[in-house]
């Protein structure tokens, strides 16, 4: 499969009067065309900021991409001007958000909010755009699309609104769809429907999906590959099957174990102890070390690099795997020398 998006050494910082907050601190990953990749991690680990960085929508003036490159089909988006980015957003890369209740403009009709994207990017006449909007609404499974189009968002339920958001995001056949916790605010049955819908659509038009979530259930449902982030860095990358079968990084192990098992007889959950370090109190050495059950002396002094494991299909940032990978090079170096 051809590579669509490549993020290299992305660093997005927030600048306060006194301190610098490193929300995203050196992130590398790639997404292939048509592939669904999940970006998981606890709240505040930088996953949302990573996605906003790709859209170049990091809230100014406090946040800024300070380093790194974001390549979409080989073009570096970080160098794009605001005007050039406007042609990418909503067109090549589109995004859906966590809160369908508040993500639609309350004073514009559903139809207006979809057609405005189509007329803006595809330069279609209004009538045709309306036609297309109706088709899109049908595609995402909205009944009575012809009448819904002149309704306002407050008349729709959360699930319906998220469908509208998806229709809007898919209206220009984007190459990449970034879904930032698309199902978190929905109830479980609706969640499943929305996930199925996204799966279908991405297959139909060969759109890649970057799925941002902290819900491992959603990950197993939708994603092919998983990227685990912790405190602004990637700690592990693997295919979904590998990750659930054999999580390598102690943090990933913790995540997988903390998911309640429906067959288990024990009544208690297995949480990871402690909290995510606040960005201004980042521990020295491995960022997960203070919460890690396997931590040893070195973890508190030295920062581990991403290691390539098992023929380059997975990477992990942990000293535990250094020994078994004899002569292993730093993952990043390795990854790029192949290209």
């Amino acid at each position: 499969m051809e590579e669509l998006l490549r993020v290299e050494n992305l660093k997005t910082y927030f600048f306060d009067k006194k301190k610098t907050i490193k929300a995203v601190d050196g992130v590398d990953f790639a997404i292939k065309r048509g592939e669904t990749v999940a970006l998981v991690g606890e709240s505040g680990c930088g996953k949302s900021m990573t996605s906003l960085s790709i859209m170049r929508l990091v809230p100014a003036p406090y946040g800024k991409i300070v380093e790194g490159e974001i390549h979409l089909e080989g073009k570096n988006l970080v160098r794009y001007t605001e005007n050039e980015m406007c042609k990418i957003r909503g067109n090549d890369i589109s995004m859906i958000f966590q809160e369908p209740m508040t993500s639609l403009n309350p004073v514009l009709t559903i139809g207006e909010q979809i057609t405005e994207v189509i007329t803006y990017h595809k330069r279609l006449p209004r009538k045709k755009a309306v036609q297309q909007a109706i088709e899109l609404l049908k595609l995402v499974g909205i009944p009575r699309a012809e009448s819904i189009i002149s309704d306002y968002p407050h008349r729709l339920s959360g699930g319906m609104r998220q469908r509208v958001m998806i229709a809007m995001a898919m209206s220009c056949d984007p190459k990449l769809l970034i879904a930032d916790e698309p199902t978190t605010a929905l109830d479980v049955t609706i969640q499943a429907q929305i996930l199925d819908l996204m799966k279908d659509l991405s297959k139909k038009v060969n759109t890649s999906i970057l799925l941002i979530t902290h819900d491992l259930g959603v990950v197993s449902e939708l994603a092919e590959r998983v990227i685990v982030m912790y405190a602004g860095q990637i700690v592990e990358q693997a295919s979904v099957d590998d990750l659930f079968e054999e999580p390598l990084h102690p943090y990933t192990q913790g995540l997988v174990e903390s998911v309640p098992d429906i067959d288990a007889e024990i009544g208690r959950l297995n949480p990871i102890k402690g909290n995510v370090p606040t960005p201004d109190q980042m521990p020295e050495g491995c960022r997960f070390a203070p919460r890690c059950t396997h931590a040893f002396d070195r973890c508190f002094k030295e920062e581990p690099q991403l290691l390539q494991k098992k023929y380059g299909t997975r990477t992990v940032r942990c000293f535990l795997y250094e020994d078994e990978e004899k002569g292993a090079e730093h993952a990043r170096k390795d990854q790029y020398s192949h290209r």
Binding site: I88, G90, Y120
Partner: peptide, 12 residues
Amino acid sequence: DYIRTARAKGFK
């Protein structure tokens, strides 16, 4: 949020 949505649509 809907302002963020509008920005994500690529509007100036």
